[in-house]
């Protein structure tokens, strides 16, 4: 996280403190559902804008930062290797990973044009919520997409996504692990490779 965004997040966090103390602020089924609804609405807005690809990727990165638990996602993706990373490496990894995800999934946005994500149901699992949706894309049979959302960070955020049972975070941890192996376990080289990966 860059210093400026850290400061603005901290200020935003302070601003929200009074609203977060009451019991009414806990994540519930309808809030989990509306989180996913507005995430989908924001993504559709970017796709409909018809901007150039690089500027869409920046928009997707902004959406990803706003709706997802980026520190959880980065920590999960790094797996056990995160334990030996320095705090500088951790934050560099986190920002490289967010850019990588936005490019990787953003590049496929054309498949979503004219498609829709229909919320099928929300249920509480342990300490988080599972939002089941059905993706209907043009020229494809509908498929299941499930989001996991929690407010462990103090904000309602999604922290994982499953497509037809495939845990996307786990596939990214496999990718990061492979990049580490390829670079002889060197975390800095892995981060550099991630910045170049699409």
């Amino acid at each position: 996280m860059k210093r400026r965004s850290f400061i603005s997040t901290a200020i935003a966090g302070f601003g929200m403190l009074p609203f977060m103390s009451g019991a009414a602020s806990a994540l519930n089924e309808s809030r989990a559902e509306s989180l996913i609804d507005s995430l989908v609405a924001d993504i559709n807005k970017v796709i409909a804008s018809g901007k150039s690809e690089p500027s869409m990727f920046r928009e997707f990165e902004r959406i990803f930062a706003r709706y997802s638990d980026t520190s959880y996602i980065s920590a999960y993706a790094m797996g056990n290797d995160g334990r030996r990373a320095t705090s500088r490496q951790k934050s560099a990894f986190s920002s490289a990973f967010q850019g990588y995800i936005s490019r990787k999934y953003g590049r496929r946005f054309r498949e979503f044009i004219g498609g829709q994500l229909e919320v099928k149901g929300v249920k509480k699992v342990k300490q988080w919520y599972e939002v089941k949706t059905l993706a209907k894309l043009q020229g494809q049979s509908p498929f299941d997409v499930t989001f996991h959302a929690s407010d462990r960070s103090g904000k309602d955020l999604f922290f994982n996504m499953y497509i037809e049972g495939i845990n996307l975070l786990l596939t990214e941890r496999t990718e990061v692990g492979a990049l580490l192996d390829r670079n002889g376990g060197d975390i800095d080289k892995m981060i550099a490779a991630l910045k170049k990966a699409s």
Partner: peptide, 21 residues
């Protein structure tokens, strides 16, 4: 062709999707 270890990716994706089905 685009992942760092296509064998590990294909294995993970197949197993998870098959178990889901």
């Amino acid at each position: 062709y685009e992942s760092a270890d296509s064998y590990a990716q294909a294995r993970l994706i197949y197993l998870q999707n098959r178990r889901f089905d």
